[in-house]
């Protein structure tokens, strides 16, 4: 394989992977073969490139060989199967749960009961080697040990309360950069879509020119969700206790489902929990129950969302400096 790659002309190799071009810099002779170019380098060139000749060759060959690999856009997944392990006292956990793309599952349970462990087991594709003893099958199979780790990073995207944007770039530039990493055809256009979508989810609008670190909590979360839905290659999304003030939750979940993700979220928010098709109840380190959301439960959503809107109206009133002397009649404890 390496012989035919070494025969590639420099400009061909540069086209295959922009990282190749970035690494070797401007080349006076773009139609030189890679092999001839490597042979022409002297000590000063290698010093500038910070590589020995052998390492440079291996490095460039890997860049070319993998250029195709990373262009494969989305990691496909047919089903995720979770097999029970044991609870905190060592008793067997009775669980065999199969989830397919488009599934939304909420995970509930008291603090310390093991919700994060449950999400963590999915994150690392546990094979009986975590404290819970659970096993995770991908498309019905045990991921082979050497590939398990490579797969876990690609399969699972995570969102949590502690996460912030830290990079000092504008929203537009950064999302475009993310789109470029995914090798999408029109990064600029995709970035604009992500930002428009985040604006539909966020209560307060923001533009592409604002710096990421200036976003409010709600705007950040809206952007993270829109980005995961439209740009992340991972088919599984884990959401850990994400605070949901300032975003439209129903739209956020609809968006993730529309992009064919499997969503698992630990939450105590009744609106999110009832939007999920299933609810996993965790107690003492094990799944105690898997509850299907009933039609009656789902019928309550309209009422819950109504109250939720009233609460956010009150927030909005406070934000504008007004007083809350009278509450809407629905808030009367006697009414």
């Amino acid at each position: 394989m390496s012989a035919h790659l070494l025969a590639l002309k420099l400009d061909e190799a540069q086209r295959l992977n922009p990282a190749f071009a970035a690494l070797i810099g401007p080349t006076p002779k773009p139609d030189l073969s890679l092999a001839d170019w490597l042979a022409s380098l002297d000590g000063g060139d290698l010093d500038r490139l910070k590589f020995s000749r052998i390492e440079l060759e291996a490095h460039l060959l890997a860049l070319i060989a993998e250029a195709e690999g990373f262009r494969t856009p989305v990691t496909r997944l047919r089903e995720l199967r979770i097999l029970g392990g044991r609870d905190k006292t060592g008793g067997a956990e009775n669980l065999d749960l199969v989830l397919r793309p488009g599934a939304i599952v909420s995970v509930v349970g008291p603090t310390g009961s093991g919700k994060s462990r449950f999400l963590g087991d999915i994150e690392c594709l546990a094979q009986g080697d975590t404290p819970s003893g659970r096993r995770i099958l991908i498309d019905g199979e045990i991921p082979d040990p050497a590939r398990r780790w490579a797969a876990s990073g690609k399969l699972v995207a995570q969102l949590s309360q502690n996460m912030n944007f830290v990079v000092d770039l504008t929203v537009g530039d950064f999302i475009e950069m993310h789109a470029e990493c995914r090798a999408v055809d029109a990064p600029e256009q995709v970035a604009a879509e992500v930002i428009a979508c985040a604006n539909r989810l966020a209560g307060e609008k923001f533009s592409a020119n604002i710096s990421l670190t200036q976003l409010s909590g709600g705007q950040s979360r809206a952007l993270m969700i829109a980005d995961v839905a439209l740009l992340s290659s991972s088919p599984i999304v884990l959401i850990d206790e994400i605070e949901n003030a300032g975003i439209n939750r129903r739209q956020a979940l609809d968006l993730l489902v529309a992009s064919d993700k499997i969503v698992l979220m630990s939450t105590h928010d009744p609106i999110l929990a009832l939007h999920a098709q299933k609810r996993i109840v965790i107690a003492a380190g094990a799944v105690a129950q898997v509850i299907e959301t009933s039609a009656t439960e789902r019928a309550h959503l309209a009422a819950l969302e109504h109250y939720d809107r009233l609460m956010s109206d009150l927030r909005e009133t406070l934000r504008h400096g007004a007083r809350l002397e009278t509450l809407p009649p629905q808030f009367s404890p006697f009414g």
Partner: peptide, 28 residues
């Protein structure tokens, strides 16, 4: 420290690590 940054930054960062060293195994 992936627990404190967004998924998008983790993906971009890992991608840039991959660009700098495509032969390495990348572990979060």
């Amino acid at each position: 420290k992936g627990d404190i940054v967004s998924q998008a930054e983790r993906e971009v960062f890992a991608h840039n690590v991959w660009r700098a060293n495509p032969q390495a195994r990348i572990v979060a």
